[in-house]
């Protein structure tokens, strides 16, 4: 039972919407954090770390806001470290394992292109605070997309080996992209209240961007598959459990401690 705000959307639904955005950035940042010290060159370590830092910053702002709206005294850390898998609302694509550098770049590219379209539209959100967060995130995401697109092109149009590897990465990760644009009841409510964008429009814009880069990368756009993932509803792949185990270990072991 949750009060509705002036726009008719229940507070709990607005919180869920914010958590979808926050958790996607958080989980993706967590994945990128695993790369540090293991990238193909020092400079790529720095580039991936830069993206991780930006995504962490976004998730902190969004989580803090979600916690305030919720009004139960949960701050960014309580939300990040003490929720269970079913309460995490990131898109399933974000939690996929790093694999090799190609897998990581494909995952990053698909999400960067999605986040850029999303944040560009959220700048006009009726939720002023969300609009402000999005305005900052847009600038960062432009740079992330530049980095991941450039690498996708180098790998796709590099050597025969890199082309084969990254085409395979694309085939493997493409099925997770459907979830980004499949509107459920929450997405529809958020869109009609003017808080967030219409996902169909988002999909078209994303699709054009992706096609342009894939063409330059000489990569083949995979066919859509019918299976739909539901990470944004809390039903995840097997990977999230392990990821949260690492993420949450210290706080769950030392309950109530300050760090």
């Amino acid at each position: 039972m949750s009060a509705a705000g002036p726009d008719g959307v229940a507070i709990s639904d607005r919180v869920r919407h914010l958590l979808r955005l926050a958790d996607t950035s958080l989980v993706l940042a967590q994945r990128l954090g695993e790369w540090v010290g293991h990238a193909p060159a020092i400079e790529e370590d720095l580039g991936l770390a830069n993206t991780a830092l930006d995504l962490l910053g976004q998730s902190r702002l969004l989580l803090s806001y979600a916690g305030e709206l919720e009004g139960k005294g949960r701050g960014e850390d309580a939300l990040a470290f003490l929720r269970e898998e079913a309460d995490f609302l990131n898109v399933t694509l974000a939690e996929q394992p790093n694999g090799d550098f190609g897998d990581t770049i494909v995952r990053q590219f698909l999400i960067d292109a999605y986040q850029l379209e999303l944040y560009e539209r959220l700048v006009a959100s009726k939720d002023a605070r969300l609009a402000e967060i999005a305005a900052k995130a847009v600038k960062e995401t432009r740079y992330h997309l530049r980095f991941s697109s450039a690498w996708l092109v180098r790998l796709g149009d590099g050597t025969a080996e890199s082309h084969a590897r990254v085409q395979a990465s694309l085939e493997r990760l493409w099925p997770y992209s459907r979830e980004l644009f499949d509107a459920d009841e929450l997405d529809r409510q958020i869109a009609s209240a003017g808080i967030g964008p219409d996902l169909a429009t988002l999909h078209d814009a994303w699709s054009s961007r992706v096609d342009a880069v894939l063409a330059e990368a000489t990569l083949r756009r995979p066919a859509d598959t019918p299976y739909l993932w539901y990470g944004k509803q809390g039903r995840h792949s097997e990977h999230l459990g392990y990821l949260l185990t690492e993420l949450q270990y210290l706080q769950r072991t030392h309950l109530g401690a300050s760090w």
């Binding site: 060159a41 400079e43 720095l46 580039g47 830069n50 530049r146 980095f147 450039a150 180098r154």
Partner: peptide, 20 residues
């Protein structure tokens, strides 16, 4: 200095190495 495959990458690397 930085190592990079091309000039565009060099600009990105320079940003990450020298302007944090």
């Amino acid at each position: 200095s930085v190592h990079a495959a091309d000039a565009a990458m060099a600009v990105e690397h320079a940003r990450d190495v020298y302007t944090r």
